[in-house]
Design a binder for these strands. Structure first.
Lengths: 397, 397
DNA sequence: GTGTCGGCCGTCTGCCGACAA
DNA sequence: TTGTCGGCAGACGGCCGACAC
């Protein structure tokens, strides 16, 4: 039996909208913790974090100093004009392209939060599964063993009156290319397998054991297929196009140029390669910086992604508060919190986080007037204190 | 019979010198027209040409404007501290990494040419061959057919008393990895073939018909093996790391930063992707700009590389002289000569060249005092007129 | 429930000379 | 001189249930 899904909805995503891959598939590949700010909202852009992504991608050790740039503040309030989800042509790794426009000095003074900007939900799809490939899955000797719950939840139901039950699946990858697989339920004990078509997919995508595949059954009755590669540190290779110094200067200069000319600039966000998100919704940022009281010794929790692509909590204690790089990026909120982790396995966890990444634990009543908040150091000049807001105007939650 | 060459010279290139691949192999892959300036010499760097390389590599249409950068002149006299020949890890395409330091304003005034800087020879090796792969060469059905003259010139001589004559060849690729091939002389009529080992090389390097392989028998009795890919314009893909705008700003900012701080910066030169060399020996530049008289209507010749990797002459006529981009890069010598080509097949040839690329044809006595030269427009401010030089001091051939 | 293996075909790889351009 | 092909033998791909964890 041949089951075709594309006939129900002949490529709707290439209709009126811009060419942009399926949002659910993108988020499934990006992971449960990754969220993208909304188009049209205002965000805070951190050149320092952007530099870290480039440094991580070029495999250039940060060696302590990420240079700053004359006239470029450590955080930049921007209008987010455009967000495009896409995937690398070579590796299928997902990335987001964002077009940012720094607010003018006048606009920066008039900042007040809009309710629409509060939403920052990562719409992680539910009708999908993600499996880490085993040696047998990637071997040429056989096919792909589908976990039973996954097959029953995501794949179209087999006709079990057949012997053996089987069907043809057609799945679209991140670039819209279709892949055909024979889905069969056989063996002793019975199990779901993908046989014919699987090996060509593995070799075409150059998958190895440890990489993951993601199948999504989306609302248009289409089967989508993404991949997520295992962290192979040596994969990142030095570009032979531009020196890493030029790249790091380039991203700073592009932002500074946009500030100076009140124009737009474009950045790429690679969720799987990037240590931390460096484009944060303005409301999330403001809430964390102005409405969260932190101090040394305070306990907090944070979310991390597990190897199996689910979410778990880690607990830790704040051990210090201060600039990550006081020389080049003074008065930055980027990873300004030094932390220690509860679990010994957390030795590889980053020793610094940003305020908006953590959830402080308080044992006493939470309610505090925002005006009673005292930052440990003065607010950096150039960023307004939201003068249009008084106590109670910011309904954050 | 197994012939091993590496035993004569166990990895000498990784001894005292820096990790740098074989110069002859690099030049053979780069092509006969590509030359690299010498370490320690002075060069002229053209940000405009560098931008063109990046634009060509990112597949971003130049759309007329390559932005300039405040304080960055269109040509920069630099000390060339370091030249490293290397090859891309993914594609094996050769590139050169150069470390440049702009001369200080004082040094720019004291520029005078040294005899050692005159040499700019491309040491193209002689004991090598380059073959464009046929469909049969890249098919899984068979091996590699070695042209007879090539095998006799480059490969170690076979023991023709054997039936059939055969040997094992070991060749090192651009990264120093060894590849083994069975070299046999058989068939009716007799011909040289590479059989066992060839197909794994083809698939590992992802070679297709039209690509070229290069075998070199170097002075250390080692067999070297390079590849040169056919021009596949769609191969260049948009990087998902940095926007092309950021890259173009970045290379300019890196150079400007080096000028401002009197420090070094690093650039990459991709000879196969780059429209024109943008780091030119100072002597070559000076000779072309000061000692070559050009005018509209003058005939000239120029060298081009043929498909078979040899050199041939093209003839043309100068149709205009002036800035390529008068708005962003005024008073630049970069591709300041508009030309027309004699042959109709030259329609795809670039319509502009730089002075140092062409050889003007004069039917009258060539000797002219350099002081009699008159440029069509004043020398751009900031670049000295070699004040230390008088007629006769510059012995430029 | 699922990862790996032995068994067993069938297809494709890869070496050979024939033949022609 | 060399690009492509038919022929052929062997290797590997790939589908199956067995079996163990």
């Amino acid at each position: 039996m041949r089951v075709s899904f594309s006939e129900f909805n002949p490529q709707p995503e290439e209709g009126g909208e811009k060419k942009c891959l399926n949002s659910e598939l993108w988020h499934a590949c990006a992971g449960p913790l990754v969220s993208l700010p909304h188009e049209g909202s205002r965000v805070v852009y951190f050149p320092q974090g952007h530099s870290e992504q480039v440094a991580a991608s070029t495999n250039k050790e940060i060696d302590g100093h990420i240079p700053n740039y004359p006239g470029l503040p450590p955080q930049l309030i921007c209008q987010l004009h455009n967000v495009t989800m896409d995937a690398d042509v070579e590796t299928d790794e997902v990335y987001a392209q964002m077009t940012l426009q720094p607010l003018s000095p006048q606009e920066q003074k008039d900042v007040c939060l809009l309710p629409a900007e509060l939403g920052n939900l990562s719409k992680q799809p539910t009708n999908y599964f993600c499996k880490i490939l085993t040696a047998s899955d990637t071997s040429t000797h056989g096919g792909f063993s589908v976990p039973r719950r996954a097959a029953e939840k995501v794949f179209p139901r087999l006709d079990y009156s057949q012997q053996p039950p089987a069907q043809e699946l057609i799945a679209k990858d991140l670039h819209g290319n279709e892949w055909k697989f024979r889905h069969i339920f056989r063996g002793q004990p019975k199990r779901h397998l993908l046989t014919t078509g699987w090996s060509v997919f593995v070799s075409a995508k150059r998958l190895v054991a440890g990489d993951s595949v993601i199948f999504i059954w989306n609302e248009n009755n289409q089967l989508l297929l993404g991949i997520r590669r295992a962290n192979r540190p040596q994969t990142v290779l030095p570009s032979s196009m531009l020196s890493s110094d030029s790249m790091r200067i380039g991203l700073l200069a592009a932002a500074a140029h946009a500030v100076a000319t009140n124009s737009r600039f474009t950045i790429f966000f690679n969720p799987r390669a990037c240590p931390s998100e460096f484009v944060i919704p303005l409301a999330k940022y403001a809430k964390a910086v102005y409405h969260t009281r932190v101090s040394v010794g305070m306990r907090f929790r944070i979310l991390f992604e597990t190897e199996e692509s689910s979410v778990r909590r880690y607990m830790g204690t704040i051990t210090g508060i201060g600039d990550l790089d006081p020389v080049h990026w003074p008065n930055s909120h980027w990873q300004s919190v030094k932390v220690g982790w509860d679990e010994s396995t957390a030795g590889e966890r980053q020793p610094r986080v940003s305020l908006w990444e953590i959830e402080p634990l308080t044992t006493f009543p939470v309610y505090q007037s925002p005006l009673s908040l005292r930052l440990k150091r003065p607010w950096p000049s150039g960023l307004p204190l939201f003068p249009g807001l008084s106590n109670g105007d910011m309904n954050l939650n």
